[in-house]
Design a protein around this nucleic acid. Structure first.
Lengths: 310, 310
DNA sequence: GCGTAGTGGTGCAGATTTTGCAGCGGTCGT
DNA sequence: ACGACCGCTGCAAAATCTGCACCACTACGC
């Protein structure tokens, strides 16, 4: 879009940290870029960047402006998608930021289902921890976010929540697999793998451990649930995860899960959210609606309640 | 602002109803305007106007676009005002849409008070009935609206409400002026002046009359409260108004007001509102905050309760 | 039935704006 | 002290936009 060109340039300068640097990435001369910046600052009546000896940095006015630019671009994108929608072209793009637990099973299944109905809708799925997911919404880098136990920012609007009881994950031949529900003290007797502290599951566990006297001392800490799940079973290791991040038990999978008694660890909440006050593009809004329905089914089914079908 | 020029042109074409007509008002050739429109439609991938033999008319896509343009311009204005604000310049502009009752006393007093603190803030006050006030908010033609008994649109966000009991207004020597509180049946015995049907006071009265058996047959109907208030008193006429639209009784004013018993006519609500989801410019936000405080004082004082000090 | 006045759209030449090159003065790191 | 990088500024070339004359078309008046 032509009339947003200059504003895009501002973002490029901000990313590059210098006018000359941004000019290179934009296939432009520093002259032209500098001229445009000066003209815009003139129109605005305030400098957008502070001039440093080694480049430029956003001024307070620039911070405001760049926020405006992002919101404006996102809104234009929504308008374009609405226009495409009323032309009958069911295309569009959805950008999702989500927690790690959603990546292996839930999101692929949901996106598959959606694209079966709307094949011309494209998707972008980015792993963002609970802090960065919310910041991505505000910066218009994601349309919707699906995060476990988020830090609730004021600028974020919750579309749906579903409780998720923490589950213990282990090999099928693990001694604990015999019990349908585990106490935290059961788990404490075996080698344990835990996600690192920025994750919601760990956050819930840390709270639970502070309240009770039981201490879980992790033998393995990782920021990858996939790694923790795949870590060889011979050690009889136990790891912890929420059910939405686990495969449905088909009775043959070498990995099984058992819920932790909720007297020990309370259920955490999985949040579906968007930026507050924003009108989503049609495709994103429709996909969010589908997710809401799916999450409600999850909540009614096996999500919050005890043992998974096994 | 340079990059919004083309979008302004779209609005001009929409207003004029034809490209050539808009070109005249913009001091441009129809050629240039036409070219820009075609280029924009190309970029957008859809026609913005339907071509009629006698001019042009907004297409559905154009409706969407023009709404986007307005919101974009309003948002840019907010950014500019925020930038001016952090430069220490306490200037800005506030656009208010309000009911007739607010015009003679309340709004002048409030704006005076505000400008005493912030002399460089300019104001625009427009009379809008309760339908048009809300549409003005959505069309970004007003920052805030102050209306009595509005039809509540979904896109409008309520900032404050204050109940207003309907008062009867009459000459000081009117027989009814002797009673501190009037029943509707008292009023029915005298010549009556009523506001026309689009006004909130009339709306409340019509409801009250439907519920009871008392019928007020107006001798004068007007869309001007000022006219009704000034209509010569010799006729011993009674008219109806809400207290915020009446002068404080200083004991000498030839016009006095008495509340109607709330068993007959329930109190209506005065709403302070803005467009839902919009972030107001600093000046408008501050003024809205002042109004909220003033309205709360009004509610605590003489607004909802019985007789005014007299 | 035909002219007229209005509409949006187009080719081409001139006006206007934007871009790029070369060079200035400055600060930092080596 | 030197080189590398930074933001910024004349001046000429390039690109873009504007305006005139003109076309095709439709509604309206007579």
């Amino acid at each position: 879009m032509k009339h947003l060109e200059t504003l895009d340039f501002i973002e490029a300068i901000n990313r590059a940290g210098s006018i000359r640097g941004a000019a290179d990435t934009l296939s432009l001369t520093s002259t032209a870029l500098n001229r445009r910046l000066l003209a815009l600052e003139e129109e605005l009546g305030a400098p957008i960047f502070e001039r440093l000896p080694r480049g430029v940095r956003l001024s307070p006015a620039g911070e405001l402006l760049i926020q405006h630019i992002r919101s404006q671009r996102a809104d234009l994108e929504r308008v374009r998608s609405q226009i495409a929608d009323l032309k009958g072209e069911r295309r569009g793009h959805v950008s999702v930021a989500c927690s790690q637990a959603l990546l292996p099973y839930f999101m692929p299944r949901e996106i598959n289902a959606y694209r079966a109905e709307h094949p011309r809708v494209t998707f972008e799925v980015n792993l963002r921890d609970r802090y960065r997911a919310e910041r991505a919404l505000v910066a218009h880098q994601a349309d919707i976010a699906l995060v476990f136990e988020p830090v609730r920012l004021a600028d974020v609007q919750v579309l749906a929540t579903v409780p998720q009881q923490v589950h213990a994950v282990m090999a099928r031949n693990h001694p604990l697999a015999a019990k349908p529900v585990l106490r935290l003290s059961d788990v404490a007797g075996y080698p344990i793998g835990l996600p690192s502290e920025e994750f919601g599951v760990r956050y819930l566990l840390d709270i639970a451990m502070r309240r009770s006297s039981i201490q879980l001392t992790p033998d393995i800490v990782s920021d990858s649930f996939e790694f923790l799940r795949c870590y060889p079973g011979p050690e009889m290791m136990v790891t912890l995860q929420i059910p939405i991040g686990l495969p449905p038990d088909d009775g043959r999978d070498p990995i099984v899960s058992r819920p932790i008694d909720r007297r020990d660890v309370p259920a955490g909440l999985l949040y579906l959210a968007q930026m507050r006050g924003r009108t989503l593009p049609v495709a994103a809004a429709n996909f969010a609606r589908q997710l809401t329905r799916s999450l409600e089914r999850t909540a009614a089914g096996d999500g919050a309640e005890g043992p998974r079908a096994s």
